[in-house]
């Protein structure tokens, strides 16, 4: 087999980069108190946090898909002025410090917030510090990841197929549902998985907007953070759970993210 020709210097840099990422992850595996794993994992705090994390992140991924896929389609196909601005605003949460996202959500949807006051005054709905608030925070943070993946896939689709569908009398909605969605299916699945993984790991926006109340709004990352000071071994076990899930998602979806719309 032919060996790729790469310089020794480049290989050394690549190896260093790999170690920088892999070593901390490996350290969690090494330091995890394996003998207490079952005991810690079955504690109420851990079980509650894991359940809340799974429940909210799955709902957030579904909401992100229901909102994000049509948004991605509009961004990919719209020629209207301002599309670029809308795209920029939609992906801002990706680079925004999550805690700032939480402040923004609190300012918008807090009980005395810009919009939240109407929710509270008119319908008595108060969003902050509820499980719904976690979902909103997760969608806010995860949506850009889904939109970037799916919009790129829609852009790569052959518009000739959409034209063909239109000549056959297909409405714009039918073109979207029956031609574009199946064409981008692989990337949509990958985008949802990415949004779910991002939601599962969400911390800054959630803790600011929803608080960290055990059994109510405390997700796994929040529990890890709170236990670092008091019960480091428990926080290690919870971290291990998150690492295993993350590695699983990446391993399953790696090919789809690498190849875009083709899969």
């Amino acid at each position: 087999m032919r060996k790729p020709s790469t310089s020794l210097g480049l290989r050394a840099i690549a190896l260093f980069a790999f170690i920088l990422v892999a070593l901390p992850l490996l350290s969690i595996f090494i330091r995890t108190p394996w003998s207490e794993l079952g005991n810690i994992a079955s504690q109420k705090t851990t079980r509650d946090a894991l359940f809340i994390s799974l429940e909210t992140s799955v709902i957030a991924a579904i909401v992100a898909a229901l909102l994000g896929v049509p948004l991605s389609w509009m961004l990919a196909r719209s020629t209207a002025r301002g599309t670029s601005l809308v795209r920029t605003i939609c992906i801002v949460p990706m680079v925004l410090p999550p805690v700032v996202g939480g402040i923004a959500l609190l300012t918008a949807f807090g009980r005395r917030g810009v919009f939240g006051r109407f929710l509270y005054d008119w319908w008595g709905v108060s969003l902050p510090f509820t499980r719904t608030a976690i979902v909103i925070a997760q969608v806010f943070v995860a949506l850009p990841f889904l939109v970037l993946a799916v919009e790129s896939a829609f852009r790569q689709l052959d518009t000739g197929l959409e034209d063909a569908a239109r000549t056959m009398g297909a409405s714009p909605l039918r073109v979207f549902l029956r031609v574009a969605l199946p064409g981008a299916r692989g990337s949509i699945v990958a985008g949802i998985a990415l949004a779910w993984a991002r939601s599962l790991g969400e911390f800054g926006a959630s803790i600011t907007f929803a608080g960290s109340f055990p059994g109510k709004t405390q997700t796994l990352p929040m529990a890890v953070y709170e236990l670092v000071a008091t019960d480091y071994r428990a926080s290690l076990v919870m971290s291990l759970i998150l690492v295993v899930i993350s590695v699983g998602v990446i391993a399953t979806m790696r090919d789809r993210w690498m190849t875009g719309a083709q899969r």
Binding site: G160, L161, A164, A165, T167, V179, P182, G183, R185
Partner: peptide, 13 residues
């Protein structure tokens, strides 16, 4: 219109 395109354009899925 019924159209047969030069590049066929059958839906692959």
């Amino acid at each position: 219109c019924g159209v047969v395109f030069q590049d066929v354009r059958l839906f692959p899925h």
